[in-house]
Nucleic acid binder design. Structure first.
Lengths: 309, 309
DNA sequence: AATCTGTTTTTAATGTAAAAAAAACGGAGC
DNA sequence: GCTCCGTTTTTTTTACATTAAAAACAGATT
């Protein structure tokens, strides 16, 4: 009735840790591991029990010891390490990504539950979050309306993003040079230069760096609404990034250079310069999203999913 | 298993309509009434059935006819006309209002379900919306954290509100004089003047007028995020308004005058003037909220509700 | 005293079932 | 053709049950 995703995720994490240990090494205590995995000791205990069952660990005098290194087959599939709720959110975004829904389409919970292999309760509870992302509208005693990733959506989200990011830079430049966010900015800048030097191989790692830069700026706003909104943006980009892979290396290089300019402006602490560079970068990013939308999702060859219209 | 709040609400609405009719008047058709009450014909049918049961209506040749006027006792209590979900949201806000929760307190679903007289499913689904309002934080596999209506909260919400409202005025002044929002503004202004003339008796109706003015402005932004955020503000104010009733008439009069200045600035279409008046008004409103928070909720004489800490 | 682990108690996650409401169907009357 | 209304089918809402995970408790060992 309740998935055991927490257990499976912890089990996998534990296997990864053991993979790096020597045979015979002794394992950490239950509470220690619970803390490092950020789960309860109850979960750690079931993980240990399973590890012993699988013959990976024995309990000898003086504690548990590693018997053999885990193989590929010992891990749980990644898909099972998501809670039912998280899985629903992911699959919903992936359906959008693949163009399985059309803007204006009505979605019904029972059908989605069947398609996603969960219960309507889970669907209802977790689809609600996409109301705040602006992708769904719920009408009482009726179905959900999918509003679509449309050009209007891009405009609205970017208008707010620009307001929020410009505002955040203001609090950012108020902070002293040795505050954690500025330290983080130093690191981020260094990673930008490293990535630029290796752009041919590593250009695909850009999105993570992008996320880190913008997040560190937004977080200095100390405003829960601004930070929550960045979470929305971040989720959205995580998924839409894959829509348009043309010129990926080229686009990432441009963005990297814009980031460096933007960082330079931040260091100057000159609001005018910051606004200019920030706006310029966001304009580029907005255009990229707009083109992705135009380009559209990878329409799957199969017909649109069996969801009533 | 499912409350019949829709039915009860419709039944009451129908009674109100009948109260104004003459005995013997014929009722509208099922589909007609369904449309005007914005419910399904299925619900209308059960309403009609109950009306006949209650002896308020008979079915004669040529349609249903009113037999007697409904009395007070015929109506369902207002409280029962809210869906379980809406009731949870309302009671939650009222508990906050009464100071039953302290900032930083952990809330647990089972306990709240008992207190509110519903199931945990309903609690979980509807408490989620207060995450978006910034009042709750949910930690996976654990309880909810009530973050409190604190001075920080007021600052954060007003910072965003100001950005959004200033931005919205820009789209507002782009619209032609005869567009619906400007027409609505004319009406709102007239009502302001009417209320000012009658301030001694009617000062309590100010919040509705406030809501209408700010909403018509926000809505011209055509931005779902801005409009959603105004919904949050609006909900919050609806409840916090009652925290501090001192100087109510005085404060409302000041706000009315500020509104009129603000409207005048909008008519001038001069961005500088608009910003000044808008900022001034929002500063006043912000200070009012800040004072309400300081003043605090009406601490109920009973101990804080039985929710685990 | 502090940490470790075995056991018990609570609580959150989530599937299932039943009632309410919506939607669809279909015939009758105009 | 169109509206009206009785019936049937779907779908949403919500309570409840069950399992996973967390938290609390308690004895043991260092």
């Amino acid at each position: 009735m309740k998935g055991n995703a927490v257990f499976k995720r912890s089990y996998n994490q534990c296997l990864r840790q053991l993979a790096g240990q020597a045979i015979g090494a002794s394992l950490p205590s239950e509470s220690e591991l619970a803390q490092s995995l950020e789960v309860s000791r109850t979960t750690v205990r079931s993980v240990f029990a399973s590890l012993i069952d699988a013959g990976i660990v024995t309990v000898a005098a003086g504690g548990r010891r590693l018997v053999r290194h885990p193989g590929e087959a010992d891990y749980f599939p990644d898909l099972q390490t998501l809670s039912a709720g998280a899985a629903v959110a992911r699959r919903f975004m992936e359906w959008i990504l693949q163009g399985d829904f059309r803007a204006g389409q009505l979605l019904n919970a029972a059908e989605l539950a069947r398609q996603f292999g969960t219960s309507t309760t889970t669907i209802r509870e977790h689809l609600a979050q996409f109301q705040h992302v602006g992708l769904l509208e719920r009408r009482p005693n009726s179905s959900w309306l999918y509003k679509g990733v449309t050009p209007a959506f891009a405009t609205e989200i970017y208008d707010v993003r620009e307001m929020f990011e410009l505002r955040s830079t203001r609090s950012f430049i108020e902070l002293p040079d040795d505050s954690p966010p500025w330290r983080e900015l130093d690191v981020i800048e260094a990673e930008h230069r490293a990535l630029l030097a290796n752009i041919d191989e590593d250009y695909r790692t850009f999105p993570q760096l992008d996320e880190r830069l913008h997040r560190v700026i937004h977080e200095t706003s100390n405003n829960r609404f601004i930070i929550d909104f960045y979470d929305v943006i971040s989720t959205l980009f995580h998924y839409t990034y894959r829509w348009n892979r043309s010129d990926e290396k080229q686009r990432n290089t441009v963005a990297l250079l814009e980031h460096l300019d933007y960082i330079e402006a931040l260091r100057s602490r000159d609001p005018r310069a910051i606004d200019a560079r920030c706006r310029k970068h966001l304009r580029t990013a907005r255009a990229t999203l707009a083109r992705s939308i135009e380009f559209g999702p990878f329409r799957s060859p199969s017909s649109p999913a069996g969801v009533s219209a």
